[in-house]
Design a protein around this nucleic acid. Structure first.
Length: 583
DNA sequence: GCCGTTTTCGGCCCGACTGTTTTCAGTCG
């Protein structure tokens, strides 16, 4: 589809227009780009069938942008855009990712020094050339160098699983202070996004300056970016930034709403406020001079005609419309999201057969019981995954009998209602076959299958491969279905829609893997799976008991994907689960 | 450049902070 190609060009035109200091046009191009990016029809089909008039039906696309899209579809180029590139041949997209550098600054550094990319910018900054430019100074130059170093090191974002534990620690420390009356996390960490740029905290305090003092002297602070009366910003030793704002009590709810975002959610919400003759900002909802809501987040949504919704939903992907329907008592309102306490067991646990880092089955079972679960499934790797000491058929049969013994031991005395299930995580071979004999698969309580080799197959082949595995009657679950490793490895090339269709037909469950660098399925696919009626399971892929808590990350992604309790099969009791697998 | 039950012109989300300037532009969230 050319939708994304054209969207990208529209975004870039927006940046160029911003460089020129043109008002309002950048927003228009950005809006059209966003609409095209998320448009569910192939733009070429649309143009073929409905022509120029069809293009103008896309929201945000009018006469002028439609002409440019038409030009691209006919010639593969847009002259307006090519002219910009010729005039300013700098990589705007990359350069503006540097903290403190926006389109206007890119224009200046290009026109004065001919800088086109990050390396050239870094060199010029090191040579002290940047500080001499109009509107720049020593500090800006230093910030640019630090910004580039940061980008090079971490690409600017951190895994939810890296950040959340630290966030909770900092939260506990700040909360203990007498000066802090009320404290919340905000931003992407409150929305539980899979990666986090920085951490945002909001507080109520009689003594904001003291809170700022405490904040900038937290352990682990390596730099103070700024310290104002109500806002401070710091860099932590782990490399990420944290912000705090002290908010007046009467505005706390609207500030929480505002700083939780997402940005797109907020823009949409503000437009609704305007339509109602209200003004929404971080200080409250106002009718003229009069404040009509602000202290309580739920009230802020209510006066705008919406029901309150969980932060995980706030991505402007339909939750606002759903919250309006909810508030009006209509059907098709907000989803009743799976709760963080709804999971009854974990079916993806690797134990001692791996020898390297696994722990024995019984230890895992007791840990899972203490974690509050009713069951745990031990799913060892299988034989073709040599590096993980995968089990062969004979060892799998031994695995089953050992689990039977453990279940017997755990239930003797009769007081313990806990069950260990025997499973495996078998390999989907290149041709879609499973590396373990069907007769042995049939003896297990359940079978997970996953792709662990040959990741770089063409889309058609990879899709076929996984669909064939789902067709095996013994395969119940597909683990980490897209294979992504956040910041490390792209998804496999697969046709997600076809996979969903096959999963529904074969009643195969798709895993939501909670491992911090996986979170696979990701939120948008979870939402699609739910819409298609495909069942999912949230597993941790733990290799020892201390990883069982990863389940929180998986649940958060499920919530971001609008999943409800009935969509997730490990919210079920064990009998229902086993019956489902047997069918 | 787009849009419209405030409709074909006039408005578009908006406030805080930094670093530069000497009253404010640029960037960020």
């Amino acid at each position: 589809m050319k939708n994304q190609e054209i969207a990208k060009i529209l975004y870039e035109i927006a940046e160029y227009l911003e460089m020129e200091g043109v008002a309002f046009k950048p927003q228009a191009y950005r809006k059209a780009g966003l609409e095209l990016d998320t448009f569910d029809r192939d733009i070429e089909d649309l143009y073929r069938e409905e022509g120029f008039k069809g293009l103008k039906k896309i929201p945000g696309v009018g006469e002028s942008i439609a002409q440019k899209i038409e030009e691209y579809l006919k010639t593969g180029k847009i002259k307006y855009y090519e002219d910009f590139k010729k005039k300013i041949p700098a990589d705007v997209e990359i350069l503006t990712t540097v903290e403190g550098v926006g389109p206007r600054k890119v224009k200046i550094i290009f026109e004065e020094l001919g800088i086109k990319n990050l390396d050239e910018l870094e060199e010029a900054a090191k040579e002290g050339k940047i500080r001499k430019l109009p509107g720049f100074g020593e500090k800006t130059e230093k910030n640019i160098l630090e910004g580039i170093a940061f980008l090079k090191r971490d690409k600017g974002r951190f895994l939810l699983g890296e950040i959340l534990p630290i966030a909770k620690e900092v939260f506990a420390k700040l909360e203990k202070s007498k000066e802090v009356e009320e404290l919340s996390m905000a931003g992407s960490v409150r929305r539980m996004k899979d990666t986090i740029g920085d951490l945002d905290f909001l507080a109520i305090s009689e003594n904001p300056e003291k809170v700022m003092d405490i904040f900038v002297s937290l352990p682990g602070v390596v730099r103070v970016w700024g310290k104002g009366a109500t806002k401070s910003s710091i860099r932590m030793s782990q490399g990420f930034d944290m912000d705090i704002r002290v908010i007046p009590k009467k505005s706390y709810g609207s500030a929480l709403q505002y700083f939780t975002g997402s940005k797109d959610h907020n823009i949409h919400l503000r437009k609704i406020a305007i339509e109602k003759g209200l003004k929404l900002n971080e200080y409250g909802v106002f009718k003229g001079q009069k404040m009509v809501a602000g202290e309580d987040e739920e009230e802020v949504y209510k006066v705008l005609g919406l029901s309150w919704m969980a932060p995980e939903l706030r991505e402007n992907t339909g939750e606002i419309e759903a919250a309006i329907r909810e508030a009006q008592g209509k059907s098709n309102g907000l989803p009743k999201l799976i709760d963080y306490k709804d999971i009854k067991g974990d079916l993806h646990y690797h134990s001692r057969w791996q020898e390297i880092d696994g722990t024995p089955i019984e230890e895992a079972a007791l840990a899972a019981r203490d974690f509050g679960y009713e069951y745990i499934g031990i799913s060892e790797h299988t034989k073709t995954l040599k590096i993980e000491h995968g089990l062969d058929e004979k060892q799998l049969l031994h695995h089953i009998s050992e689990i039977e013994k453990i279940n017997f031991r755990l239930s003797s005395g009769g007081q313990l209602k806990f069950r260990v299930l025997s499973g495996c995580e078998a390999n989907i071979m290149q041709d879609g076959s499973i590396d373990i004999d069907d007769k042995v698969l049939a003896r297990l309580d359940y079978v997970i299958a996953g792709v662990h080799s040959q990741f770089k197959m063409p889309m058609e082949k990879m899709t076929e491969r996984i669909i064939k595995a789902m067709g095996n009657p013994h395969v119940d679950i597909i683990s980490h279905p897209t294979g992504r490793l956040i910041k490390k490895r792209e998804e496999y090339q697969i046709d997600v829609e076809k996979i969903l269709e096959a999963a529904r037909e074969t009643k195969t469950v798709l895993e939501i893997n909670s491992y911090p660098e996986r979170l696979d399925l990701k939120d948008v696919y979870i939402k699609r799976a739910k819409e298609e009626g495909v069942k999912m399971i949230i597993n941790t892929d733990s290799h020892n008991p201390s990883q069982l808590h990863y389940i929180e990350y998986g649940i958060s992604q499920a919530r971001r994907g609008w999943a409800e309790k009935e969509d997730i099969i490990n919210c079920w009791p064990v009998e229902k689960l086993l019956k489902f697998f047997n069918e």
